[in-house]
Every structure is written in C-alpha cells, then in structure tokens.
C-alpha cells in the first residue's frame, strides 16, 4: 500500500492510501503492534485520487527541504499531532516526498 512516513524524535506520521478495506486492515495491524503507542487517526475519508503514486517514505531532518518543512510544522504545533490538521500534514508529506524523489532522480 502506498503511504508515507515522517519521522522525528520518535514521532511518526503516516498517510495510508488505498482501497478502504486495505486501509482498515493496515491500520488495524498498526494498532495491534505493541511497539506503537498513542496512535491518533487525524482523518479517515474517501479521496478522488491518490496523492502518493507509489510506496514512498520521507525521513525528515536529513534533506534541506525537509528541514524547512518540518521546521514549519514544529514551529506551529511543537509536533503535537493533535494540533496538526490532516490537510496540512498531507500537503507537507506530499511535498517532502516529491522533493526527495526529484533529488534522487538521475540527471538527464
């Protein structure tokens, strides 16, 4: 399932995309994992099309654009997921992933 992960200081954010049943199954697997604690679902809703075309992952804190974007989130919320809107998180993760993919792409 495509998705993305943002990591910093032990806090993860993930967008799960896919058929509803698959999202529900994956979410349930995450919830049952004893290594996870305090999992908050910010939003659960149908979308018109995917925001993340392939499985992708972003580790924030490594790339310069990540720093800049993560810095933005941290400044606003102190990275308390409860204070983050799903929309903002989604947009940030998507920008990060696209930026990292562009960086990794071979130069023509």
């Amino acid at each position: 399932m495509p998705g993305t992960l943002l990591f910093n200081r032990g806090c993860f954010a993930q967008v799960l995309e896919g058929p509803r049943e698959a999202v529900e199954r994956t979410f349930e697997r995450i919830q049952r994992d004893p290594r996870h604690a305090d999992v908050n679902a910010l939003e659960f809703a149908p979308v018109g099309r995917r925001g993340f075309p392939s499985w992708s992952m972003a580790f924030v804190g490594r790339s310069a654009p990540g720093e800049a974007l993560y810095g933005g989130i941290a400044g606003e919320s102190g990275f308390d997921p409860a204070l983050l809107t799903a929309e903002r998180l989604f947009a940030t993760l998507r920008e990060l992933v696209l930026a990292e993919e562009a960086e990794a792409a071979p130069v023509a």
């Binding site: 999202v23 349930e28 919830q31 004893p34 908050n40 679902a41 939003e43 659960f44 149908p46």
Partner: peptide, 17 residues
C-alpha cells in the same frame, strides 16, 4: 493494562473512525 490500552485505541471500521 495492555488490554485497556489496546482496546482503547482507535478503530477504522467500514469507513468510520
């Protein structure tokens, strides 16, 4: 303690949180 935590976590069920 584990059951209270585990069962108290959110569920995604048939399109609902």
């Amino acid at each position: 303690a584990r059951l209270v935590d585990l069962v108290g976590r959110s569920y995604l069920i048939e399109g609902h949180l």
